[in-house]
């Protein structure tokens, strides 16, 4: 079959854009509920907020099937090694949302028991503020992450310490949320 037979009903684009687009729409979060924020995370998956609109409702119980870890709640010194292990068990590419001030900075609990910010243990992509963040805030964080995935590099290089998801040289990332899918749009 020659190309002429297709009658032009196809689009062309870069494979990189296609991969990003597909990844963006199929993020599966791991169930990693810790504290109050976990209740709001469940509420976000419930009927009123309906996280399924973004293809996010499939909370995987096994970290090996998940590619997003929503750290929902305060991380204690005793939990920190467990959290790191769950993170290590997840397959690349993987992302982390730090949900709530306790996970982001320790929040109200600046004391001996709580890790002052989960970014000391795992690299965090998006921080959601609030105590606890309402489901709308979590959804905004998730959409922000989607946007980062869509505009980021395919291969993340976390070791360099650079915020690799931002494409600094070519097109500065703008937080336009929600976004339309632009398949194959030249930069």
């Amino acid at each position: 079959m020659a190309l002429e037979d297709l009658q032009h009903n196809f689009l062309t684009g870069r494979i990189e854009d296609l991969v990003r687009w597909a990844r963006r729409a199929s993020v599966w979060p791991a169930t990693f509920g810790l504290a109050c924020c976990a209740i709001e995370m469940m509420a976000a998956g419930g009927a009123d907020f309906d996280l399924a609109r973004y293809g996010m409702e499939v909370f995987r119980n096994s970290p090996r099937q998940a590619d997003l870890m929503i750290v929902a709640g305060r991380v204690s010194q005793k939990m920190a090694p467990v959290l790191r292990q769950v993170y290590d068990q997840m397959m690349e590419p993987k992302w982390v949302i730090s949900m709530g001030v306790c996970a982001s900075t320790g929040g109200l609990f600046n004391n001996y028991a709580i890790v002052q910010g989960v970014d000391q243990i795992v690299p965090v992509d998006v921080y959601a503020p609030g105590c606890p963040p309402s489901p709308e805030t979590l959804m905004h964080a998730i959409l922000t992450l989607h946007e980062q995935i869509r505009t980021g590099e395919i291969l993340k290089r976390r070791s360099s310490g650079e915020p690799t998801h931002l494409d600094h040289q070519e097109s500065p990332w703008t937080p336009e949320v929600p976004v339309a899918v632009r398949l194959g749009t030249p930069k």
Partner: peptide, 9 residues
């Protein structure tokens, strides 16, 4: 695993 030290705080 969720010990927050609330009594100390």
């Amino acid at each position: 695993y969720l010990h927050t030290g609330m009594e100390k705080t």
